[in-house]
């Protein structure tokens, strides 16, 4: 019986700080694919005569399969109002697609997060 897991993750991020401007913009993203499953086992059955052993294991690969696609995108914009004061707005989008909802049910879901505020230094 073979068990295999695979994970592939791609990420990219960038930040712009325009010279002489009060703005600063950053963005980052991650895309991740993960999966795991058990191959159909080659099962050796006991050499019994006391019971019929008529088992079918062909569904194990499908029922044991876990497969997710996940996206994380975050962005932040900040603006300086003076040497010591600035404001910021952040957006974050987190999305999960469950392609094999066998064990824990369908865990597909997404969250959009918003942050905003001001910052002062002294």
């Amino acid at each position: 019986m073979d068990y295999e897991t695979k994970a592939t993750s791609l990420h990219a991020s960038g930040e712009i700080v325009p010279e002489g401007r009060p703005w600063r913009v950053s963005i980052a993203g991650t895309l991740t694919f993960t999966e795991g499953s058990i191959d159909a086992p080659d099962v050796e059955l006991p050499e019994e005569t006391v019971a019929i052993a008529d088992y079918d294991f062909s569904a194990i690969p499908e029922y044991s399969r876990l497969k997710y696609r996940q996206i994380e995108l975050t962005s932040r914009v900040s603006r300086s109002f003076s040497r010591d004061a600035s404001g910021y707005v952040e957006l974050g989008w987190y999305d999960l697609r469950d392609d094999s909802p066998w064990v824990y049910g369908d865990e597909t879901g997404s969250v959009l997060v918003t942050r905003a505020g001001v910052q002062t230094s002294f």
């Binding site: 987190y94 865990e107 879901g109 997404s110 969250v111 905003a116 230094s121």
Partner: peptide
């Protein structure tokens, strides 16, 4: 004494199951 104070708010919009993604 030096420091930084940040005051803001946080909100979220949820869709589907969020226990795994967050």
């Amino acid at each position: 004494l030096e420091g930084t104070v940040s005051v803001g708010g946080y909100g979220a919009s949820l869709d589907g199951v969020t226990g795994r993604v967050r």
